[in-house]
Write a protein that binds this DNA or RNA. Structure first.
Lengths: 241, 241
DNA sequence: TCGCCTAGGATTGTATACAGAAACGGATCT
DNA sequence: AGATCCGTTTCTGTATACAATCCTAGGCGA
């Protein structure tokens, strides 16, 4: 079973005349999610319902629903009777999110070490080995997809569906920042080495060790992200606000 | 200096009769949350928007928004174009949730052990000592409130706001089941003893030990809940259906 | 008799209309 | 000049109307 969780959902080239199978609110939610994580919609900016409705050529109703969904994901903030704003994530907040993700992933890999099936273990190794090519060619997008599959498979190996869903949801909220740090030179190779070390600990059945390495793995990514922000956005943000 | 302007925005009435204070969708969301967790709305039952709108004397719009919010909390399931249904939680699913909560709380108390401030530690002890009266008098509701404050304060002591929010959200989803198990004879006293042991580990600065005890604390609650379910619903569900 | 197709009813999804609150700007007063 | 008051305006929150889809039931044909 090799299902790709991150399939691109870009079948929007159909005529606008046909009502698509999915709900309008879902389409809008996805579009807004992309724009926010890509930085097109800048943090702190207000999202006007009418304006968005006009942009997507729909009424305010599905736009409202999409915005409500986004607020639950933490991407936007709703101030009642005031409006909807793209959540402004402070660097501290982002680091808090990374730390939380690190701890959650650590506990997942610890449980996974004790519960993983031989088939799952084989699949993990297979994924990891396949990532070697991506690391060498520097294909960030491909490695990003692999990385996701790798981690999700570990959640899966906990054999706790609720925990898996929670971990996936957490990971989704950090994806934008993860991609950012992954683009730094050398990060992919380091990431891959850390994966190998985690797999080694799992192979020895040492859940605590695997957990420690996973925590370090995530915190390294956080540090890389932090360094990236310090290097790239300091000059720009000097006069904002 | 206080002017006597015509500003009467400051009337804070708490009654639920004709108050226009909050948003309708919020009020409905709370009402439905209560009814679902209390079991008034049984798992698997369909929620008709028009019917609910009639019941609350509002239009379908705020009802829809409330239902969307609930679906993100996992209380209801939305099948597009099919309707909204109260989520049917299998015993396995509930145990998965308890395990996840146990692990998350364990990691919280581990971090809290290393980061708690003297003031927070004092507040924890104070809370714990105050709970003695509730345990003796068997006031389940009061103990339930204390229990919540106690655990939330531990999340707070991690000094990671994001983690605190996540842990609180997780706890909310389990509150209904927690109350159930707490009503079993002796559970309150046992719970209080376990709290004391957790505090002791924190006082010694042994985060790992505190984490283990917290995990056991939550899993004990899960076991108690499981036993409660087995005792109370087995005879009925044995040959019905 | 059984299975497929179609018509009707019911319910959700979306659009539009209306009401009230919060932001904005100008005029007046101190 | 600065602040305050008040009217205007814009936008959200809610209500209602319309459209599309799904479920059900009944008829028709094999």
């Amino acid at each position: 079973m090799r299902h790709k969780t991150g399939d691109m959902n870009s079948m929007d080239e159909m005529d606008s005349a046909v009502t698509e199978r999915g709900l309008l609110s879902e389409r809008i939610r996805k579009a807004l999610t992309d724009e926010i994580t890509a930085g097109v919609l800048q943090p702190g900016s207000a999202l006007d319902e009418q304006q968005l409705a006009l942009r997507f050529s729909v009424s305010r109703t599905p736009v409202r629903e999409a915005l409500r969904q986004l607020s639950n994901g933490g991407l936007v903030e709703i101030r009642p009777r005031r409006g909807v704003f793209v959540t402004r994530l402070s660097p501290e907040r982002i680091m808090e999110m990374f730390e939380t993700a690190a701890e959650v992933e650590a506990l997942c890999v610890r449980l996974a070490t004790y519960r993983v099936t031989p088939m799952e273990r084989a699949k993990l190794v297979e994924l990891h080995e396949a990532s070697g090519l991506m690391a060498e060619s520097g294909d960030v997008d491909a490695y990003d997809r692999f990385n996701r599959d790798f981690h999700v498979l570990i959640y899966q190996a906990t054999h706790n569906g609720f925990m898996r869903e929670h971990a996936v949801s957490l990971r989704n909220r950090l994806d934008a920042f993860r991609r950012t740090q992954l683009r730094q030179s050398g990060r992919i190779l380091i990431s891959r080495i850390e994966h190998a070390e985690i797999l080694a600990a799992m192979a020895e059945g040492d859940g605590e060790q695997a957990a420690r390495r996973m925590r370090a793995h995530l915190l390294n990514a956080a540090t890389a992200f932090s360094r990236f922000v310090a290097d790239h956005s300091a000059p720009e943000s000097a006069l904002s606000d």
